[in-house]
């Protein structure tokens, strides 16, 4: 009966095919050898089947990342579709790993696969979550840092979907600036 029901239901196609990547920090290997493609999906149903069977981000060990990118874009600055882009960065306090991290990451994923950025959804490349002892980070990567209108629209919608207060300010950094400066020193190009 369940099989028959599943066949009758049909699946809901997404606008894009998405790839989930996993990074585990092993210092004995090169950075790219630590980055693995987990799987790709292109329907709502397959997204949940995947999401339900992987570790929640809050249970990963420090140094690990999940990345969700459109099929054909690798989760690294060097990819041709990322190199002129940047990221909206959410920096979390340590205690937020247990209270908000998983919800923020799930809402980030839903924003991406649901194409919730209106006519600017094509600007989105993917999203990354970094699990780090000093504080976790979530970011949405977009393809063109100079597209102020698109970038700020994405930032405003993203902030609203995370349920962040108007008092909270989030910043956008161009990858070109992040790549040449260490961590927190990277220049903030836009804020919302």
């Amino acid at each position: 009966q369940e099989l028959l029901l599943a066949e009758c239901l049909g699946k809901h196609p997404l606008q894009n095919r998405w790839a989930l990547w996993f990074f585990k920090n092993d210092k004995s290997k090169m950075w790219q050898a630590n980055l693995r493609l987990v799987t790709k999906f292109s329907t709502v149903e397959d997204f949940w089947a995947l999401y339900s069977h992987i570790q929640p981000a809050s249970k990963l060990t420090s140094g690990c990342d999940y990345s969700l990118f459109k099929d054909g874009i690798e989760p690294m600055w060097e990819d041709s579709q990322n190199k002129c882009g940047g990221r909206w960065l959410i920096t979390l306090a340590k205690q937020q790993r247990h209270t908000e991290l998983d919800r923020f990451w799930l809402d980030t994923l839903l924003c991406l696969i649901g194409e919730m950025f209106d006519e600017h959804s094509d600007e989105v490349c993917g999203a990354v979550i970094n699990i780090r002892a000093k504080g976790d980070k979530i970011a949405i990567w977009t393809r063109e840092a100079e597209n102020q209108q698109g970038v700020t629209h994405i930032g405003r919608v993203y902030k609203e979907h995370l349920g962040l207060s108007q008092k909270v300010v989030i910043g956008y950094q161009a990858h070109a600036d992040t790549a040449t400066k260490s961590g927190s020193l990277a220049k903030t190009k836009f804020v919302v």
Partner: peptide, 20 residues
């Protein structure tokens, strides 16, 4: 036509597929 889904719609599928 673009395939767009809102949060509530997507969340509606969560527990159906978590239990399969």
């Amino acid at each position: 036509e673009k395939k767009r889904y809102d949060r509530e719609f997507l969340l509606g599928f969560q527990f159906i597929f978590a239990s399969m």
